[in-house]
Amino acid sequence: MTLLNKVYQAVFRRTSTFALAIVVGAFFFERAFDQGGQTLFEQMNRGKLYKDVKHRFQGAGEEEEE
C-alpha cells in the first residue's frame, strides 16, 4: 500500500503528471504490444513463415540468378 501511496503522491495527484504518465506509458505500451503481437504471430505460425523456409530457396536462388 505504501507503494500505491507513493505513486499517487508522485503521479496521479496532479493532472499534468498524470497526462505525462499516460503519454509515456502509451509509448512503452505500444512497443510492448506490437512486439508481443509479432512474437505471438510468429510462434503460432512457426515453420510456415518465409524466414523459416528461406534456407531452402537461397541456394537454388543464387544459381538461377544471371
Binding site: 500500500m1 500505491l4 501511496n5 499517487y8 496521479f12 498524470f18 504518465a21 499516460i22 506509458g25
Partner: peptide, 24 residues
C-alpha cells in the same frame, strides 16, 4: 490514497490503451 491510487491506475491504463488505439 490507496483507494484513489487504484482508481486512477484503472483510469490511467484505460487512457494508455485508448491513446495507443487512437495513434494506431
Amino acid at each position: 490514497t490507496g483507494r484513489k491510487a487504484f482508481t486512477y491506475m484503472v483510469v490511467g491504463s484505460g487512457a494508455v490503451t485508448a491513446a495507443y488505439a487512437a495513434k494506431t
